[in-house]
């Protein structure tokens, strides 16, 4: 199969899963702590994936800048989400803003893959999702954790960012050394995106059910 067609197919499937999450969110209109940033995240994700498909069809390949904009939106929305559910102290909030400023600066002035926005998202959100797990274990307030919306949203974030960690870490090397295989390697991101969206959809559905 032509790698471009393969990549576009993966993006389309990923987009359909995002659409599913958006539809379930619109249908059930769940209200829980942190639901707003997740709503924005899936809408932005749907828009950026749709634009990527459009550019793929028109120009023959997706526009990388859309992905970068999406990563910044992802960073903002998820920071907002974790701010809501972890109740950051003012000091923590300031540290995050400082970190964001450094990441933004480094990215725009240095294209070194090791400290790109993607990898920063991975590290920050793996840590935050682990903090949330610890918080759940410490509080011991939720009777059925597997029926708790926030747990599934956190799972989605955790699984996606742990799964894509090596992909984003080695992105530059993989492009340079495995250029032919790279479109196929990149589908790991799309597959994990689908898993993430299904988990989001399940979390929204659970919220309505509960």
């Amino acid at each position: 199969m032509d790698p471009r067609i393969f990549q576009t197919t993966a993006i389309v499937l990923s987009n359909l899963s995002t659409l599913l999450a958006v539809l379930i969110f619109s249908w059930y209109r769940p209200h829980f702590t942190g639901s707003k940033p997740i709503k924005f995240l899936i809408i932005i994700s749907l828009l950026s994936d749709s634009l990527n498909i459009l550019f793929g069809l028109l120009l023959g390949q997706p526009k990388p800048s859309i992905g970068i904009v999406y990563r910044y939106a992802e960073l903002t929305c998820l920071l907002w989400f974790y701010k809501d559910i972890l109740n950051f102290r003012p000091g923590t909030k300031n540290s995050i803003i400082a970190l964001l400023a450094i990441v933004a600066g480094v990215y725009w002035f240095d294209s070194n893959e090791l400290i790109s926005i993607r990898l920063t998202n991975n590290i920050v959100f793996i840590l935050f999702s682990l903090v949330f797990f610890i918080k759940i274990l410490k509080a011991l307030e939720i009777e059925r954790i597997d029926r708790h919306s926030l747990f599934w949203i956190n799972n989605a974030v955790f699984v996606y960012f742990t799964g894509t960690f090596f992909l984003f870490l080695l992105r530059g090397y993989l492009i340079n050394h495995h250029y032919e295989e790279y479109p196929y390697i990149w589908t790991v991101n799309n597959l994990l995106g689908i898993v993430k969206n299904f988990m989001f959809a399940y979390a929204f559905w659970l919220c309505k059910k509960g």
């Binding site: 799972n155 955790f158 699984v159 960690f165 090596f166 992909l167 993989l174 495995h178």
Partner: peptide, 20 residues
């Protein structure tokens, strides 16, 4: 790098699943 990526991703996903 392909091997490192494959192994690394598998280990990370396995660890994530185990933690959950």
């Amino acid at each position: 790098f392909l091997l490192v990526f494959g192994l690394g991703t598998s280990i990370m996903l396995f660890m994530a699943g185990s933690i959950v």
